[in-house]
Design a protein around this nucleic acid. Structure first.
Lengths: 316, 316
DNA sequence: GCATTATATGAAAAAAAATTCATTTTTTAT
DNA sequence: ATAAAAAATGAATTTTTTTTCATATAATGC
């Protein structure tokens, strides 16, 4: 190392130490070392640039913030929240609920309306979520009901549980999500009680939605809303899965299909207008639909587990 | 870790990462996370406090900045500069010269007057120093000459070498430092050429001075200015050594003694008024006098080697 | 349950830091 | 050596950050 470089590095180290370790402000450092505060400011920048100063983030709760940060950048997300992987699904749901509670605490305010989707993940998050404080929110379903007795995944239930816990008000959509015919859907859509919910849904700032794949294990098959043939058809036209019952391909584009006209849910263009669209999903089967949902901007906040997060990065 | 704590730590980690790693400003973080910038600011402070953020200083030239920082605090120094220990004295002197050059670059400005002391260390620093830039300084000796032909430690020489290298002007004190009698000293002191130098010396903002012990190997014995008996006497009255020919005890107090009245040098009270008093010395024999000089505020900037620095800390 | 104390909050003010810009200094090329 | 280009500098401006202060929220004791 040349003498001048040594002298420069020595000074930069000294300034960095005084600033970061001894907590002197730049004015005081300037006075102490007999240089201008401008030079101190520039020296600190330079010391950072030269990696004389290295800053690390570490905390018991920091396990995934780096991974989260990476996901946020790669998929251009507003935010990403990751829970540890576990054999135990309940463990995952509970941890997701904790993170979503932290998120809600920041992004929801009195008077806000939260839109909710459907699915096992949402049902469980709503079951385990514990508000950090009461918030007077309104909750509305973003699609009709998909549950049948015994296989309860009703959006109305999710909406009401969350609203109750937060001390807010929930609204229900009194219609199935999948109608028998285009005509039936049109009629329900115009029904004043349903129309009112969709009007509310159009004005939400936050949505918490589920994503599903079109595998044969899908809840949508179990609920009887769709048949295996329906799913085979969807697969044949390149569908990767659905986001709030919007069928999309891997690129995140909604693909026109025979089923669409019978579905009662907030459409893609309206959903994309929502400021915070929280998509919660995990597991290998959800990779494709998650990738699509992020690419197509159908979600901008991702809640998932570490395994899924890792796979998403790989396939980005 | 309790759930609320986890949530708090998670948020703090996230904020810290966005701020320190991703270089977002607090405003942007606040917007992203939907919190106030005040909270972001406070969160960053808290993250630092909780050691979620750890900052390290590292550079090839940083070997001793931590030790320097410790010395500065322990001995309330304006600054401390440490060179690596070496078997080779020349190596130490050369390195000291580099550091002193860096220091001069900061603390000396055109028109400033630098006072210089005496000793092997100063002589060598002046020999090896290479200015980082030209500075139009004036240099004045802070004591009379101690050298004899063959054993040159003359302050006039030190002053003139430094001034020449920096492109400044040097002034000489045409008198020995140790006179034969009190009377002789009084006469010299009043001599206009000497008086003028002391007048200049009283107005300096920076002094570079040497420290010596009163061991039998001392240069002062070799120069013939003092006898072994003189030193034994000084030792008997508790003298630890001298700073610019001011004899002090280990507490840094100048001790009245029979020799004082024959010495021609800037006295302690005048020296203490100087803004930057750079003391350069190393080696086991200098520990006591260094401790005294720092305690008594006869120096406020220390230049030494790592070994001596370590011993000083131990005996602090 | 209610009152009291402690803690947390955000808007505004103050302080600190980064950037801009005009100038000087240093380096490089001739 | 001198001129031209590049880099460094510090005062002033702008931006960012911290602190203050008044208010609101939550925790604790009675």
């Amino acid at each position: 190392m040349a003498k001048e470089d040594f002298t420069e590095y020595k000074l930069l180290s000294k300034i960095a130490r005084l600033y970061y370790i001894d907590d002197l402000n730049q004015q005081k450092i300037a006075e102490k070392l007999n240089i201008s505060r401008t030079k101190v400011s520039r020296s600190i920048s330079r010391a950072k640039q030269l990696n004389i100063v290295s800053i690390n983030i570490n905390s018991p709760a920091d396990e995934f913030t780096e991974l989260e940060s990476t996901l946020e950048k790669v998929f251009d997300l507003k935010e990403c929240l990751i829970v540890p992987w576990s054999e135990n699904d309940t463990e995952i749901y509970r941890n997701m609920a904790v993170l979503v509670a932290g998120l809600f605490d920041r992004i929801l305010a009195d008077g806000d309306t939260l839109g909710v989707g459907w699915g096992a993940t949402l049902k469980n998050i709503s079951a385990y979520i514990e508000p950090l404080r009461k918030i007077n929110i309104q909750t509305v379903p973003l699609l009709g009901g998909l549950g049948r007795s015994g296989i309860e995944v009703n959006t109305n239930a999710v909406a009401s549980i969350i609203a109750e816990k937060y001390g807010g008000t929930s609204y229900a959509m009194h219609s199935p999500a999948v109608l028998d015919s285009r005509q039936a859907r049109r009629i329900m859509e115009k029904d004043s009680s349903v129309a009112e919910i969709f009007k509310m849904a159009a004005g939400i700032n936050t949505a918490l939605i589920g994503l599903s794949d079109i595998g044969q294990q899908s809840t949508m098959i179990k609920t009887g809303n769709f048949s295996i043939e329906d799913f085979k058809y969807l697969e044949s036209i390149g569908i990767a899965g659905d986001v709030n019952l919007i069928f999309i391909n891997e690129e995140g584009q909604p693909v026109a299909n025979d089923l669409d006209s019978r579905l009662l849910r907030l459409p893609a263009d309206k959903l994309k207008n929502v400021k915070n669209i929280i998509g919660a999903a995990y597991g290998a089967s959800k990779i494709k639909v998650l990738l699509g949902a992020m690419k197509g901007n159908l979600i901008n906040i991702l809640v998932t587990d570490e395994k899924t997060a890792g796979q998403l990065i790989k396939q980005a």
